[in-house]
């Protein structure tokens, strides 16, 4: 559990934000970053640990958000039961999608996940009587009534995020998680060793989808509005961008990536008109300087800094250099 301490300290500091924030705006921004981080953490299981690059991850938050929105507005359920049903429903759909998507790997997997997400998008867009078409579903009721202020909503998001970090961190270090990384690096050898590669991937897929569904609930409660835009290819690409920019296969990476994207998108635009360009330039910069992503890149920097402090005159031994690069 010790390795979770830095994460918990960081989340604890964010939870104190309402004390210093001059307005609710920054608190709400932090909530958004937490929701985005939740999506990115889920996708990271696929991209980072399983080596399956998905361009359709928005499907899970999307389905969950639509389900909870529909059930609690037109379905007449309370937010609680609606949330449970929404997560269960998303889980079922994810199982079905997994059967289809996990037949492929590599580029094929990218295409099929994108296609599946497009199907969901198409349904949300065209099945107007059920989904409201591109006008979406509005007026989604929030749980906990008046207790849910911007501050308490941020705390709710952070608590969920903390649970996700611990669950996913433990999952990654568990025998199953190690086997999952094995299927990423050497699927055929893993198969030869008697591991059921498909089943391991399927479990990872379901875990990723479940956290996506939870993120979808928070998304629907935060915005109180769902529309097909949250299922668009750009939405999936944005989550993938968070994972890749932050550092796939690390626990801190998706969190950093999500915070970076949300803050750049919403904070930079206050001062800079051409914020889209800034976003692009930032990612080019990350790719050039830290091709593995922010989290590994920063670790790399720290390592180098430490070495230089330890032996300022002698060049580092070749073996060490190799280990870092490899």
């Amino acid at each position: 559990m010790r390795r979770f301490i830095p994460f918990m300290i960081a989340l604890g500091l964010v939870a104190l934000l309402p004390l210093v924030s001059p307005s609710d705006f920054y608190i709400n921004l932090a909530s958004q970053a937490a929701i985005a981080a939740l999506m990115a953490l889920g996708l990271n299981i696929l991209v980072g640990y399983a080596g399956l690059t998905s361009l359709g991850h928005a499907a899970f938050p999307g389905i969950a958000a639509y389900l909870v929105a529909w059930l609690s507005t037109r379905g007449g359920l309370g937010p609680g039961p609606a949330a449970v049903l929404a997560v269960a429903g998303t889980f079922l759909v994810a199982g079905l999608f997994g059967l289809l998507a996990l037949r492929a790997t590599g580029l094929g997997f990218v295409m099929i996940t994108m296609a599946l997400c497009q199907i969901v998008w198409g349904g949300a867009y065209r099945w107007t009587s059920l989904t409201g078409g591109d006008n979406g579903l509005s007026g989604v009721p929030r749980p906990f009534g008046d207790m849910l202020t911007p501050t308490t909503f941020l705390w709710l998001c952070l608590i969920v995020l903390a649970v996700a970090i611990i669950q996913i961190g433990r999952f990654a270090e568990s025998p199953l998680g190690v086997a999952l990384r094995g299927t990423r690096d050497q699927p055929r050898r893993m198969s030869a060793l008697g591991y059921d590669v498909w089943r391991i991937r399927f479990v990872a897929w379901l875990v990723a989808a479940s956290w996506g569904a939870v993120a979808g609930l928070l998304y629907a409660w935060y915005h109180q509005f769902v529309s097909p835009h949250m299922l668009a290819v750009t939405a999936s690409a944005e989550v993938l961008l968070m994972v890749v920019a932050g550092g796939a296969g690390t626990l801190a990476g998706p969190l950093l990536g999500a915070a970076l994207v949300v803050l750049l998108k919403n904070l930079a635009s206050i001062w800079i008109d051409r914020w889209v360009m800034l976003l692009g330039a930032t990612f080019v910069f990350i790719v050039l300087i830290m091709p593995d992503g922010l989290a590994p890149g920063l670790m790399h920097l720290r390592e180098r800094f430490r070495k230089r402090m330890a032996s300022p005159t002698i060049a580092p031994p070749l073996a060490g250099q190799e280990r870092i690069d490899g």
């Binding site: 509005f225 529309s227 835009h229 919403n266 635009s269 914020w275 889209v276």
Partner: peptide, 22 residues
């Protein structure tokens, strides 16, 4: 403010206008 034609961004921009710029 620029909403980028995205509903989620629009919501954040509205919050910026109301909560930050009052």
């Amino acid at each position: 403010v620029d909403t980028g034609g995205q509903p989620a961004t629009t919501r954040t921009r509205a919050q910026e206008l109301v909560e930050r710029s009052k």
